[in-house]
């Protein structure tokens, strides 16, 4: 079985899907000749040509808005927003148009687009190349939001997203692009949207995370294992729709839960997870539902001392797990 980085897995999947589906196009800033600023689309322009791999102007709203129109007229666009931090000019097109098209037309129109965007901190990207923007979109009915953390999942989830008849936001953590490797089968497998995965079974505390934080949570679980704390780690993989069955099943077993996300703490995605647990697993809880998240400052600061202060890391997660385990 081939071993791939997360980035290689995404790149190969894009190429495979374009070979499989002649209606698929890729469009975004620098996605063509350069192959993307991270080289995620490298080789696509050479293989599929400028009709299907389109270097756009610096116009995020156009990238998404034209994708909506193209989807309505028979194509399957996979637009790229170069950094998730720059998705906001397209917010109106995503939230007012793509998300609402099927509902507002009473199913007469659909919007099969997959919007890819690199996100996340820990890469010296400062305020405007580090953001986690998922919470803005998980709030919106009509959208699906996916965050892969492994090369295997990235391939299977990206296939599901591209083949999905509705708009999907596909957030790829920049720090994982080249730092994580894993086995990726050559088969045409898919990972269904809306299914979380227990990545480490345990008994005392459930840790729920996604993206880079799914890896850090596994490291934290290892840190406390020697202290007799058995941690169950769940990688959500899809944030909307949320796999409530898997998280409720785990928390009802352990009675304690830490939710980890690198976005700002207040109103972040973890708040919804906490609310679900409070409403549906209250009788099983043996301690407060705890969030470990980014501090409430308007962005990840640049200097490495400041960035380290901002970022959630395995030690911070482990500290929260110890406190909760002792509760």
């Amino acid at each position: 079985m081939a071993v791939r980085t997360l980035l290689e897995s995404i790149r190969e999947t894009l190429a495979e899907e374009m070979r499989r589906d002649p209606t698929m196009i890729v469009l975004g800033e620098d996605v063509g000749r350069k192959g993307g600023v991270f080289l995620t689309t490298d080789g696509l322009w050479a293989e599929f040509g400028e009709d299907r791999v389109i270097d756009t102007p610096l116009t995020e709203s156009l990238i998404v808005g034209a994708s909506i129109g193209a989807a309505v007229n028979g194509l399957r666009p996979v637009p790229e927003i170069q950094f998730a931090d720059f998705i906001f000019p397209a917010f109106n097109q995503i939230v007012s148009e793509a998300a609402r098209l099927r509902y507002r037309s009473n199913n007469a129109f659909g919007c099969p687009i997959t919007i890819r965007a690199p996100y996340g901190g820990g890469v010296h990207g400062a305020l405007y190349h580090s953001q986690s923007v998922e919470a803005y979109f998980t709030h919106v009915p009509g959208l699906k939001v996916v965050v892969p953390s492994t090369p295997y999942d990235a391939r299977g989830l990206l296939r599901s997203a591209i083949r999905d008849p509705d708009p999907v936001l596909f957030f790829e953590h920049k720090k994982l692009y080249r730092s994580v490797r894993g086995e990726v089968p050559d088969t045409d497998y898919v990972v269904p949207l809306g299914r979380a995965q227990v990545t480490r079974p345990g008994d005392h505390v459930t840790v729920i995370a996604y993206g880079l934080m799914a890896h850090y949570s596994l490291e934290a679980a290892e840190l406390v294992a020697g202290e007799g704390i058995s941690v169950e780690v769940i990688d959500l993989r899809t944030l909307r729709p949320l796999d409530t069955e898997t998280i409720l099943g785990s928390v009802k077993k352990t009675g304690k839960c830490v939710i980890v996300y690198e976005d700002n703490r207040f109103g972040g995605y973890g708040a919804e997870v906490a609310a679900v647990l409070a409403e549906e697993a209250f009788d099983y809880l043996d301690g407060p539902v705890v969030r470990v998240a980014g501090p409430d400052v308007p962005g990840v600061p640049y200097s490495h001392t400041l960035e380290d202060w901002f970022m959630v890391d395995p030690d911070k997660i482990a500290a929260a797990v110890r406190r909760l385990a002792a509760y």
């Binding site: 808005g65 129109g69 193209a70 989807a71 007229n73 028979g74 666009p77 007012s96």
Partner: peptide, 27 residues
């Protein structure tokens, strides 16, 4: 006839995308 919303001018990009698809698909 494309479904429309209330925010104004968003539809210009949909028309452009529809035309892009028409050109690529040679319809």
């Amino acid at each position: 006839i494309m479904s429309q919303s209330s925010p104004v001018a968003t539809q210009v990009l949909h028309a452009v995308g529809i035309a892009l698809a028409a050109k690529i698909r040679r319809t």
